[in-house]
């Protein structure tokens, strides 16, 4: 049974008479990785700032493990770890001193725990160097280190893989998944890298103009495509013109893109079509269903982004 770790209830935020967040509600369960996406200016950072207590709510409430950040701030904050936008640390101190500094703001974080976290984010070699000498990726790692020092139940990451190299991205992705699965941490990731979000998240919320316009599970996506719905199918064949003709005869709408054919078919229709083509001596290299990418869907849902 996974319990709700973070709960937003009808959260509103008005800054200088402009309503920026217009009644936002969503829950993130323990052990869940939640992707928080939306076009520029949608209100992601504003929402995150409210969750971590940098901004006060105009209305509604936010609860962390059932504790309101408004009436029980310190209890709620104990269970939150976060990077808000860029991880800005003290440039004139070493990575180690930075971590000591933030560890001092909690009860009972041992030096061993700090060493463990340093190892986890792979900064052992440079931890005694001044942060101003760090590359962006090293800073990002140190940012993650300070966010998880106190073993929070809710981890909030604004663009966590920004500035990391491919190996680093994979490491951090694996690490975030581990945190969620093994330690039951609820992770909220805001990102613009939609493919990244898709790889890492269990559930996605799309926000636009301060409102949640869509929310769904990443894994459910395939199940929701039931047997009857049409899917885009890619056909890679030798005799493209010939094949196109055959399909047109069968009254199947076909799109030609480059040297490949795309048709809209239900799952059951696929074997029959393949058989027809084979019978006509068409050499088939690939038959694949193409997923509608999150990006397509995102753009469809959010439309062109008009910043209000």
């Amino acid at each position: 049974m996974s319990q709700i770790a973070l709960e937003l209830k009808d959260v509103k935020k008005t800054i200088s008479k402009k309503e920026i967040i217009k009644g936002l509600s969503f829950n993130v369960k323990q052990g869940e990785v939640y992707g928080f996406i939306g076009p520029n200016g949608a209100g992601k950072t504003t929402t995150i700032r409210m969750i971590v207590g940098l901004m006060k709510l105009s209305d509604g409430d936010i609860k962390v493990l059932g504790k309101s950040i408004q009436s029980d701030y310190s209890e709620a904050a104990k269970n939150i770890g976060a990077i808000v936008e860029n991880p800005e640390l003290y440039p004139f101190m070493s990575g180690w001193k930075n971590l000591i500094h933030f560890a001092n703001m909690y009860e009972g974080i041992s030096k061993d725990r700090i060493r463990e976290v340093v190892k986890l984010v792979g900064l052992e070699k440079v931890i005694n160097d001044k942060v101003k000498k760090y590359s962006l990726g090293m800073r990002q790692r140190l940012g993650i280190a300070q966010a998880i020092l106190h073993k929070p139940s809710v981890l909030i990451l604004d663009e966590p893989t920004n500035g990391l190299d491919p190996a680093g991205i994979r490491e951090i992705r694996q690490y975030i998944k581990d945190l969620a699965v093994k330690e039951n941490v609820a992770v909220i990731i805001s990102s613009h890298l939609l493919s990244e979000i898709e790889l890492i998240c269990d559930r996605i919320g799309i926000i636009k103009h301060g409102e949640l316009i869509s929310e769904r599970s990443v894994n459910d996506q395939d199940d929701s495509k039931s047997e009857e719905t049409k899917q885009k199918v890619l056909l890679d064949v030798e005799q493209v013109d010939h094949a196109e003709g055959i399909l047109k005869e069968l009254e199947i709408p076909v799109n030609r893109e480059g040297g490949q054919l795309f048709v809209e078919l239900t799952r059951q229709e696929v074997p029959g079509i393949v058989k027809q083509l084979v019978n006509k001596d068409i050499a088939i290299y690939t038959v694949a269903t193409t997923k509608v990418t999150l990006e397509d869907e995102f753009l469809e849902l959010t439309g062109g982004n008009v910043i209000e």
Binding site: V52, G53, L54, Y73, S74, E75, A77, K78, I80, A82, V84, E85, P87, E88, L89, F102, M105, Y106, Q146
Partner: peptide
């Protein structure tokens, strides 16, 4: 931003 998000 890292200072004011602590349980203090």
């Amino acid at each position: 931003k890292l200072l004011l998000i602590r349980p203090v």
